[in-house]
């Protein structure tokens, strides 16, 4: 099996970092094959950036994405420009407050309140980790333990906070997949920043 994922956001949101973590988790801890390629507009902060992650059970021939099993986007144009790449049976994950997913044309869309969750955890920088947790939950290809270990490798000092952010995103995915709602209790205690 081969899965193709695009994670896209604006420079600074951590889209490429999330892609690296996912690829590392698949290869190092789940024993799968993965290729991560990246792209970005000619800005450092504020322009678009993306990580493309191909994951497979066997060696990967063509290393780039062609038709997406999953599109994760944290900005509006990321949905609009990449929509055509998503397979009919694929799905889209959006950050709920940053993307209006109304135009997703019949594809499955999961809206994740990642910004709110990140704020409740005390750091908006956790946005991409919450989204990554949701992606891993919806995709069901890479194990959550593998991703948490890869996160801890990359950010050892923030391992605990990242674990909480990841778990929150993963739990959102679990609830939504069971047809449930994302309740206040799930989003977490505390004031939003």
């Amino acid at each position: 099996m081969r899965w193709e994922v695009r994670i896209t956001g604006l420079g600074g949101q951590g889209a490429i970092t999330a892609g690296h973590i996912l690829g590392r988790a698949a290869v190092i801890y789940d024993g799968k094959e993965a290729v991560v390629t990246e792209g970005y507009s000619p800005y450092i902060t504020g322009g678009w950036s993306r990580a493309d992650v191909v994951i497979a059970d066997e060696p990967i021939d063509y290393p780039l994405v062609t038709k997406l099993d999953a599109l994760l986007t944290m900005y509006q144009e990321g949905l609009d420009t990449n929509l055509k790449l998503v397979k009919p049976q694929g799905f889209i994950i959006t950050e709920k407050t940053m993307v209006n997913a109304a135009g997703a044309g019949g594809l499955r869309v999961f809206e994740v309140p990642a910004l709110l969750i990140a704020d409740r955890l005390g750091k908006r920088i956790l946005l991409n980790v919450v989204m990554l947790g949701a992606l891993v939950g919806f995709l069901g290809v890479v194990s959550p333990d593998a991703v948490k270990r890869a996160l801890a490798d990359r950010f050892p000092k923030a391992a605990e906070l990242n674990r909480r952010a990841f778990d929150a995103g993963f739990e959102v995915a679990s609830r939504l997949l069971r047809g449930g709602e994302v309740s206040e209790e799930l989003i977490g205690e505390g004031e939003a920043i």
């Binding site: 690829g23 590392r24 993965a34 290729v35 390629t37 990246e38 290393p63 780039l64």
Partner: peptide, 9 residues
């Protein structure tokens, strides 16, 4: 560029 900038095992 593809080989230089790709991440892989």
């Amino acid at each position: 560029q593809v080989v230089g900038m790709m991440w892989e095992r």
